[in-house]
Amino acid sequence: MKQDKLTNSADAISEDATKKRRWITGEGAVSIITVLILVALWTALTDSYIDDLYFPSPMDTIQVVGRMEGVLVGYFLATMYRVVVGMLIGAVLGVVCGVAMSWNKWINSVLDPLIEGLRPIPAVALIPFFILWFGIGDTGKLILTAIGGFTVMVVTTLEAIKHVSPIYIMAARTLGASRLEIYRTIILPAITPTLIGGVRVTVALSFALVIASEFMGAQSGLGYMIMLARRTLQTDAILVGVIIIGITSWIVDRCVRIVGNYLTRWAPRSE
């Protein structure tokens, strides 16, 4: 009897235990159909109205991939390295600084003007300086990407800590937790859902920053490839670059979401 009541109330908010897991849902099928219609439209339009020079057909695009395979992999890896490493450095530093700033008001006073000075400047505007200082190798691109991720994550972290419900902190204090322990066991888990959102913004921003800096000066990378292709009007190569960037950015975001969902599996969700 009691057991019954408990399971019933659980059903209302989380999954219905009797519902079977299917490999594809109705919503998923609709999304796939949308993609198929778009590809069909693309094929039809490039076959008839649109000149290959302005927008290549799906066939051309696939052929380019075959032709460029060797360089493509190298360029792809170069870009991924810059995105992932730059982003990680920036995000980790951002979270660490955000936490440190909320921990100690002196650290806050030192870092706040630096961050406020950096935040309003679009990081892309700094690219010419970075080329001047660090050349067209990886260093400048990594630092630039890290700066972008840092600003997003430091602001996200500070905002998130500010909004941790005081009742949790009070409860932990009455149970004997020290300040360090409160940060470790209350504040960090409480801000994780917000931080995941910040990381997703950082992923998108990091791709944008790396590609932009590869446009302006590089010897490898997908941005560099698109730049070269533009000079020679190889629109099919440009499109391949764009598609690869889009797909990988989506995959990285997807990975962040999967890890994020696992880390916040305790959080009630409204879907």
Binding site: Y168, M170, A171, T174, I186, A190
Partner: peptide, 12 residues
Amino acid sequence: TMVFQGDAVFPW
């Protein structure tokens, strides 16, 4: 120790 008026159980 204390039991709060609101929900103070740590959700995580």
